[in-house]
Nucleic acid binder design. Structure first.
Length: 580
RNA sequence: CCGCCGGUAGCAUAGCCGGAUAAUGCAUCGGAUUCCGAUUCCGAAGAUCGGGGGUUCGAAUCCCUUCCGGCGGGCCA
């Protein structure tokens, strides 16, 4: 909360508690512990600026009806020296507080004073938090799901930073393991097909079929010719991977940069394999007796770990049995570690780097991996609850109102590269953050490409541009803006002005709510609300008046709106236009 | 079969750690605008919150049950 809002709420809370104390002293209330209550902005502004459910929460504690408690409180309420003017009992027993006129003026002053810092808070207390997102396989092009993950992850990181966390963003590059072998195999087949003809070498079902693989193989052929045809399969595949993988990774970095995502860390999975961390991690599990060998593979006792965890939570044996928990392979019988083993080592590495928390953004299709990942962290002696997984629903691509099916096998998909070329990045970044992560998104290509768009990002940008024009127009007329005194700001008392100020005062709160829920969509919604409230205000209240005091007061309010919109757009790395 | 996520107006969504008249955008219909820039604003209509039970002073929200949709249950990632 902004300092002022925090103060206003704290004052009200103290006044309520003091009144309850007096009631006890008067012998009206019995002496007993009282339940916690909330003070919040009511949905309907007719119910005051702030509302408390204290009387209802206390009904059971005091064995009295909520309305009776509420009236006892209001009779003893002392509101002098608070921002609140009066308090009314309403409905089933709400205590509704109405703030005095100076409050709004103070908010405006506060916003103008904080400027680009308005909205920031120390909610996160500087805790170090790692946000990992996209982490696409470097074996092929990125797709729409990665686009959503990118917009979500980058904006979530920004929100957390605004809320006072020390944030580090990260991309995990799966440049080792099974899929790299498959990558080498696929490249190899395309390479040989290039010289021997498509019919000469069969492309297995279980390989990457995409055009991108063909393209890389041909690039390789252009450089090395057929010189690798005679070499061993192993040597040829290694050379192909060594050639193609860095190019793919470079492409991902280019695309992310184009998408305005700049990672703090690009973490290579291969590091874990090469420096022994993976083996170390597996050894920890071994030493704890949580592994066994079967069929030549090394298994992790996942069912035991998760089963025990559930028992602690009081689940019955029946319930646990029904889950059919399974153990997991760490080291395959061919000696290669699984993705899961690498992932445990990776998260161990993250926490060893000093992060208090780690957030992973995963596609919802990975949800089955969540419990065992957290359990494994517990098992190696870290607290799995320090890892939060944000599951993101996938993107349904639409064209002409029809679903466009994406297939990894045939390699036919709309890639992130296509998307970034066709659609304004402002729109994409905003759009993918208009729904909460758990809600699926239909992405209509035609609509998005047609740019005239109903995309609300334009609505917010327009409001900002409009404010800029107001200032320049008035300046042309010789009515240059001058900072208002607190007294002049009291002139802002129209309904639309008060609504707008109240909304602007909620900014910091909205940021912390978005941070708490890991949901940047709360902020895009808020931005639209602010733009709407501004347009209403501008429609109802004339800014260009001859009354300089009123004019400057209204311009001050415009400046506040501009500040908030600009802060949001900047935070989300969306263009902040002065004209459109 | 088991599990995870979702089901709210014609469409798309918010509200979900219990609270006041269920909110917003699009679409539909009607209206407004002597300040910047009509990419604006106002109003109307539109919802048995998937169905059924339960807990409670109070349920879209919590519990149980059931139906529908998406996803997962690999020595894939």
């Amino acid at each position: 909360m902004s300092v002022l809002v925090k103060q206003a709420v704290a004052e009200i809370r103290r006044a309520i508690m003091d009144a309850a104390g007096v009631a006890v002293a008067d012998g009206v209330f019995p002496e007993c512990p009282l339940s916690d209550f909330v003070i919040e902005v009511p949905a309907n502004k007719a119910n005051g600026d702030y509302s408390s459910n204290a009387a209802m929460m206390w009904a059971r504690d005091l064995h009295k009806s909520p309305r009776e408690i509420a009236s006892v409180i209001t009779e003893r309420l002392v509101l002098a020296d608070t921002f609140a003017d009066r308090c009314e009992v309403a409905g089933p027993g709400f205590l509704n507080f109405y703030l005095g006129e100076t409050y709004g003026a103070c908010i405006v002053e506060d916003i103008l004073e904080k400027g680009a810092d308005y909205g920031k808070s120390d909610y996160g207390k500087g805790a170090k938090i790692n946000v990992e997102f996209v982490s696409a396989n470097p074996t092929g092009p990125m797709h729409m799901g990665n686009a959503r993950g990118g917009a979500l992850g980058d904006c979530l990181a920004a929100v957390l930073e605004y809320a006072g966390y020390e944030v580090s963003s990260e991309f995990y590059i799966n440049d080792a393991g099974n899929q790299i072998d498959k990558f080498g195999l696929s490249l190899d087949i395309r390479y040989r097909q290039h010289f021997l003809g498509e019919d000469a070498v069969e492309l297995p079902e279980d390989s990457y079929h995409g055009e991108d693989i063909k393209m890389r193989a041909e690039e390789f052929a252009a450089v090395y010719g057929d010189s690798y045809l005679g070499k061993s399969e192993d040597e040829r595949r290694k050379a192909l991977v060594a050639f193609a993988l860095p190019k793919n990774i470079e492409d991902m970095k280019t695309n992310m940069a184009k998408y305005r995502i700049v990672y703090d860390t690009w973490f290579h999975e291969s590091v874990l394999h090469n420096d022994g961390e993976l083996a170390e991690t597996v050894n920890i599990l071994k030493e704890k007796g949580l592994t066994y060998e079967k069929d030549g593979a090394l298994w992790y006792r996942n069912s035991e770990v998760l089963g025990n965890k559930l028992r602690e939570k009081g689940k019955s044996e029946d319930e646990i049995a029904r889950l059919e928990l399974k153990d997991e392979v760490l080291i395959r019988s061919n000696g290669n570690p699984t993705y899961f083993a690498a992932d445990i080592a990776y998260h161990r590495n993250k926490f060893a780097r000093g992060f208090d928390r780690a957030i992973d953004i995963w596609g919802a299709d990975h949800h089955g991996h969540v419990a065992r990942m957290k359990g494994a962290l517990d098992a190696i002696g870290l607290d799995g609850d320090r890892l939060d997984i944000v599951l993101m629903q996938l993107v349904n691509l639409k064209k002409d109102g029809q679903n466009v099916k994406m297939s990894k096998r045939t390699g036919k998909a709309v890639t992130l590269t296509d998307l970034l070329e066709d659609i304004p990045i402002d729109a994409v970044r905003f759009f993918f953050n208009t729904r909460e992560p758990g809600s699926p998104i239909d992405f209509d290509l035609d609509l998005a490409i047609s740019q005239n768009s109903e995309n609300p990002v334009y609505y917010c940008q327009y409001a900002h541009a409009r404010i800029c024009s107001i200032f320049s127009k008035l300046e042309e007329e010789g009515k240059k803006y001058e900072k208002s005194s607190l007294k002049d700001l009291l002139l802002l008392k129209e309904e639309e002005e008060k609504d707008l100020i109240a909304l602007l005062s909620a900014f910091t709160d909205r940021i912390t709510a978005a941070a708490k829920n890991y949901d940047p969509a709360k902020i895009t919604k808020y931005a639209v609300e602010v733009a709407t409230a501004f347009h209403k205000f501008y429609n109802a209240c004339r800014v260009n008046t001859e009354d300089a005091a009123l004019r400057n007061a209204r311009l001050s309010l415009c400046l506040c709106v501009k500040t908030v919109l600009s802060n949001i757009l900047t935070m989300f790395r969306i263009t902040v236009p002065e004209r459109m």
